[in-house]
Amino acid sequence: MAEAGRATLRVCALYPDLMNIYADRGNLLMLERRCEWRSIGFEVSAAGLGEGVEPDAHDLFYLGGGQDRDQRLCALDLVETKRDALHAAAGRGALVLGVCGGYQLLGHRYALGDEEIPGLGLVDLETIRSDGARLIGNVAIEVDLDGDGRRRVLAGFENHAGHTHLGPAERPLGRVLKGHGNTGSSGLEGVRRGSVIGTYLHGPLLPKNAWFADWLIAAALGLDALDALDDRFEDAAHAEARRAAGV
């Protein structure tokens, strides 16, 4: 706790102009303000097409969702210019959060009929575009992030045509309470391997789950706990998102 005043959360936003289709910037804003209110420093740097990333310079890498064409552009760029750095970053414990399209790109590949988009291969999963109806709606999942049996709820909204299948050794982020999740039928949502997290809860999921924003800040900085904030509005928004999902 004593270090919190001197700590700085260093975020790398990957393709913030292209992979932001569902207002992903709400997540960065959430992290920024909640650091600021606790006198934790906050830095965000953008890494766009063709720009390399420094694996040791950031505590959290954020990759959001984009339109199909933009996702394709970014996937190729990720593999060409950023894969090794992101593997190195994740390897030393930096957080990597992939949301929606960004989640799909954490795996091996995204197959769309005849076409295949390459992924980072940070986790053992693949995504296959379904010809059926898109999986759209409010969603709530139950997670146990610290592995101590304390279950908490993440609520949000999902909208995806891809069905994501986890490899045999891979663990989901959580269990679907309401909504579709990875495939619409597996009951599993997202992926979690150490500091790498992926989820279909898209766009501004941190505003709906302020507790998760704090978990990310603490985990990224290696802090056990953060100062409490006046979270009346945050708690109400979380409750509202859960009600919208029906839990």
Partner: peptide, 17 residues
């Protein structure tokens, strides 16, 4: 129906609570 999240958005935009 989503008044609470709208208020949250405004708080994070800088409106005093």
């Amino acid at each position: 129906t989503r008044a609470a999240e709208l208020a949250l958005r405004l708080k994070y935009a800088g409106v005093a609570p």
